[in-house]
Simulated assay, not measured.
Amino acid sequence: MKPARIVAAITGAAAVVAAGAAALGWIVARTLTAPVSGRDFDLRVHDVEHDGERTWIVLDRTSDTAATGIYNLGFEHGGWAQLGPEIRDHGPDRIARAVTGASDGLEPKPGDRVSWSGIYYATPADAGLDAREITIQTPGGACPAWRIDGSSTWAIHIHGLGGTRAGTLRGVQVATELGYTSLAVSYRNDGDGPIIGSGRATLGWTEADDVEAAIHYALRCGADRVILFGWSMGGTIALQLVLRPHLKPFLAGLVLDSPVLDWRRAIRANCKHAGLPGFAEKLAMPWLESAPLARLLGLPSEIPIDAMSYRTSAKRLTTPTLIIHGAGDLSVPIDAAADLRDMRPDRVELYQFNSGHTVSWNREPAAWRTTMSHWLQRTT
């Protein structure tokens, strides 16, 4: 082959590789910021067994369905069932879980499509909480929230990416037992809050402004101090807010469960978990950090990924912080939390559970509640 043809062949191959790399980065970034689409009903009920007054639901055996702890099973046709820790072995491919509670009128049957979740309580009433629905005016629009009244210490509970405020009710219970007033908030593009633009998430960057509005609401209503409870991306949001100088005097503590403290690490971990090559995270970054590419993706502007990293904020963190994290978390590995603890042992305490992402409560509810309650009583 002549040199000119060799150069042309290499150039063409490079263009194909570059186009493929750009496409992979676009897919990763687009998936990460995708608008809320509801639950995936990716499990099927194989059988329903009755043992006296107890009902057992037979499911495919997966790492989730075989996990120790208590969980929630949502049904595609509506309704939910709470599952206790009891497990019956049905061979290598199936497993049965005991039903400990269910929504009114639910009658599980073989063939039902269901969705597994760590969000155990669907509503405040399910969690034994006396809540009222309010609306908080935010820069993104009117955001619904649940308010549970208590003392002049307020707890603001922030859910994660793809989650709902129902997921925070596990922490609201502890705050309520301590006498705090709680707000379980929503924010733009989370399925409860207003839809802005294409409905895509900005990984906590703009969502933080909506949660700041909830803090101002609490202060207007008489709060003398505020504690932020952040779950997953809610931890990203909480960490941003506690560094805002005008809010610092009012924020007495951070309680973070499985927080995303470094989006680069989290994206890398999720790519690996999905079977993508290790460099996929780097390919996604330009689509998030470059304004022109971000707009092509459907975002309002670029996302300053590093500005939300614990590396940027560690030195400025003055608020007492509790982090609860699962050692087996494949979505948000515990190493970033451990790094922040090591960088700021004077401000950060880290408690490790043998669990996955945001399911430490589900795995060991009593230990989780005790850890959080004791820390709050001792620290804030």
Rank of each mutant, 00 (worst) to 15 (best):
R88F: 13
A274E: 11
W231R: 04
P277W: 05
E107F: 12
T321H: 01
Y351H: 11
R132K: 14
W154C: 07
P259S: 09
L322D: 06
R369K: 09
T135V: 08
I303Q: 00
H246N: 13
H159S: 10
S152H: 13
Y71T: 14
D262T: 08
G25D: 02
H325E: 04
L299A: 08
G275S: 12
A81D: 09
I156D: 08
E212D: 15
A274W: 11
I305H: 01
W116F: 15
W375M: 11
R88T: 10
I134P: 00
G128W: 13
A337T: 06
R378D: 15
I215R: 00
N270T: 08
Y180F: 15
V7L: 14
C271S: 11
G167R: 08
P300A: 11
G105T: 10
I324H: 02
S117Q: 11
D342G: 10
A337L: 12
H157Y: 02
A338P: 12
T379E: 09
P144H: 05
D104F: 08
Q173L: 05
D190Y: 05
T318S: 12
G140H: 06
P85E: 14
D192W: 08
A81R: 04
H157R: 02
A201N: 13
G12T: 12
D64P: 06
H216G: 09
A23I: 01
F353L: 01
A13Y: 07
I6N: 06
Y351T: 14
I6P: 01
G111W: 10
V260L: 06
T380Q: 04
V260M: 10
D262M: 06
G230R: 02
T11W: 02
P259T: 03
D47W: 01
L322W: 00
V260G: 00
V185H: 00
E107T: 15
N72P: 03
A291R: 14
V172Y: 06
